[in-house]
Nucleic acid binder design. Structure first.
Length: 277
DNA sequence: AAGGCGTGGAC
DNA sequence: TGTCCAAGCCT
């Protein structure tokens, strides 16, 4: 859950409800993907949920206890494997999250660096006699002192040895930001009496989540009921929402009450809000 | 090996 | 208001 997501968000809204619903690895493994995604709804990066579900099934009974084996599980890369191994099982391995990366870039005055170089520096700094505290301290330092904006160099315990002290914003060299494309499909809400047609995504994008139909072409008979704007990580959405009573051939129709049980993306949540008003 | 992959906090 | 960015991983 914490991959690319702030601790505050996870702790306040997702961690405890998820553990209550799936108290054990077995419970998670035996749950349906729909159930897992429902508990993940709104957290984003849903491949994490799909991978976590898969990882639970790969584990069978028990979580592996070495970083080497942990890394074989779906959705667990080097940093997460090292985090689990150092925090839970006492292995002397460094992590490489956004906080640590930022510290390394500044501490070693790196304009740019490949992941392998950052890992090398990370091992170089690691206090192997206490990896738990070291890793925790690095993340805390990055979160509280060596921050992206307004870093507090005068307060930093590493200031003496840091090669980037005083000019932290020089490291790394910022990458040119390319602007996100804006897509403008129509969102089509098919209504049949009290029921609505929803579709489950079968590709990687929002995979497994349910949502209303999107189409690049406008159906002849439909009524505009609103507009939706949304910003994903790699593109924007700006679309008209159309209500249609066309008798389409479709297997999955749901009442508003039944839709509550489905996992929907942020966009489809916004569409749903238009229907409830 | 860049780019895909969500959402909301913080400013 | 827009912009940056977060306990990264996968392809």
């Amino acid at each position: 859950m914490l991959q690319q997501t702030q601790v505050k968000t996870v702790l306040e809204r997702y961690y405890f409800p998820f553990l209550q619903q799936f108290p054990t690895l077995q419970a998670l493994a035996h749950a349906s993907l729909d159930e897992v995604l429902k508990m993940w709804e709104g957290l984003g990066y849903y491949s994490r949920a799909r991978n976590l579900h898969k990882a639970a099934q790969m584990c069978r009974t028990e979580l592996p206890k070495s970083a080497k084996e942990l890394e074989l599980l779906a959705g667990i890369g080097t940093s997460t494997a090292h985090a689990i191994a150092s925090f839970a099982y006492g292995e002397a391995l460094p992590i490489l999250d956004a906080n640590v990366k930022r510290i390394l870039y500044r501490y070693f005055a790196l304009k740019e660096a490949k992941p392998s170089e950052l890992w090398s520096k990370s091992y170089e700094l690691l206090d192997a006699s206490n990896a738990y505290d070291f890793n925790q301290a690095m993340m805390d330092l990055g979160a509280m002192v060596c921050t992206p904006k307004n870093p507090q160099c005068p307060l930093c315990p590493l200031a003496d040895a840091c090669q980037g002290v005083g000019s932290p914003h020089d490291y790394p060299t910022p990458k040119p930001k390319k602007q996100k494309p804006i897509k403008t499909p129509y969102i089509l809400v098919y209504q049949h009496g009290e029921k609505f047609a929803l579709f489950q995504n079968h590709k990687r994008f929002l995979g497994g989540l349910w949502g209303f139909k999107q189409s690049d072409s406008k159906p002849s008979k439909s009524k505009k009921i609103g507009e939706i704007t949304h910003h994903y990580s790699h593109f924007g959405l700006k679309c008209n929402v159309l209500l249609s009573s066309d008798a389409i051939e479709h297997k999955h129709w749901f009442s508003l009450k039944e839709i509550e049980a489905l996992a929907l993306s942020g966009v489809d949540k916004k569409v749903l809000a238009l229907l409830v008003v």
